[in-house]
Design a protein around this nucleic acid. Sequence first.
RNA 1: GUGGGUGUAGUUCAAUGGCAGAGCACCGGAUUGUGGUUCCGGGCGUUGUGGGUUCGAGUCCCAUCACCCACCCCA
Length: 421
Amino acid sequence: MKYPIPRGTYDILPDQSYKWQYLIRRFQDIAASFGYHEINTPIFEVSALFERSSGESSDVVQKEMYRFTDRRGREFALRPEGTAPVVRSFVENSMDKDGAKTKLFYVGPMFRYDRPQAGRYRQFWQYGIEFFGAQHPFYDAEVIALLWQYLKGLGLSKIELRINSVGSPQCWEAYEKVLKEYYRPHLPQLCADCQTRFEIKPKRLLDCKVPSCRTIAQDAPSQLDHLDEESRQHFAEVQGHLNAAGVPYIIDPHIVRGLDYYSHTAFEVVFDGLGAQNTLAGGGRYNYLVEQIGGKSTPAIGFAGGFERLILALESEGIQIGKPLIPDIYAIAMGAEAQEALIPLIYDLRRELVSVEYDPTKTSFKAQMKAANHSQARFALIIGEDELASGSVILKDLETGEQVSLSSKDIDAIRGAVISK
RNA sequence: GUGGGUGUAGUUCAAUGGCAGAGCACCGGAUUGUGGUUCCGGGCGUUGUGGGUUCGAGUCCCAUCACCCACCCCA
């Protein structure tokens, strides 16, 4: 192949695209039912936006961003995640007004320069929502409930919601101190990554996957035990609202989200039965990001999920994802004159949004019937010499084999017969 | 960025270092008025790419690219 597709990307071909349409539509529908409005932001932004929001030390910023410089030397990056651009737009369009509640959702591709793997791509599609304007725990639960309903509604059963509170800046310092005190004696036994985490970002010590580090993490002091009163209260109320929403959850103190901007509620939905990349979606509260980006201090919470992993999960549970496009009618003409009469009829039906397939390169009757069968269309619409003479068409039900004769002018009758099935 | 595995027809796979094949799919046909089953016919493909070893390489060696899996990280 002379011009191969870039590594870690893929084409969504027709045998897959209907699944995407379905999943996106379902997400749009459920978002609408929760009162969320769609927002579309550019797929690139100034690099500094992500550096500021995700955190300079985060992996995303350090090594996973697709950066480029434009002709005037400005530094841009393909968006590695969706929250920062939405927050940028939120601020730029003056949505940060006192007391205003803003509910936004988005769907679109994100880009990260990672090594591809099962459920991980360099261009991947995310769905997500962002809520702005209140720190009330009701909204934490609402955001989580939207995600849960979406996934459950698609038919997934092997999913689990894990929630945690990472507290507020008021209790971070004290907790980090406790954490480092616990870890200090274990320092020599930690993996190389954790040695640096100890200095840079002690909280990330908790979700290291190296077995030896893991056992040490088991007994580490939990952020949950070191929450200030306000955070503790908030977390408890979030749980109450989740109960009220009928959303089952488990508390997992090891959830530490990757990006720097999270505070209070953090959550993930994991799927049992994918490869190593088993996080279907994740999110959390970020009460300080809007201000950090230059807006008015505005509490916010949101999540993002990956479509590729969602499809993997659905397929591993054998769940039907939407329906492929199948024509309602396959049209058949015998002879040039019949074709001449048939073609306008095809367009008349299509004007009524009846999906009709016709292939003039197949001339023999048998070839056309085979094609009709192959198309999986429920009906064949046939015009031959006899029909031409009588101004009629044959509508044949390819499933039952029954056929009826209808007037070739009576589009409504044809349409009616088709949509009744 | 690190490690392991794999690259042959659209696809799934064959081919002791010696003529690149089969199933499925696809297309056509079995006297252009009734499909699915059946039968017949249709395949020269840069064996991922580039080097090397050899009389001879799909097969052995090196490099490179891609995919898969895992680490890392995350969606």
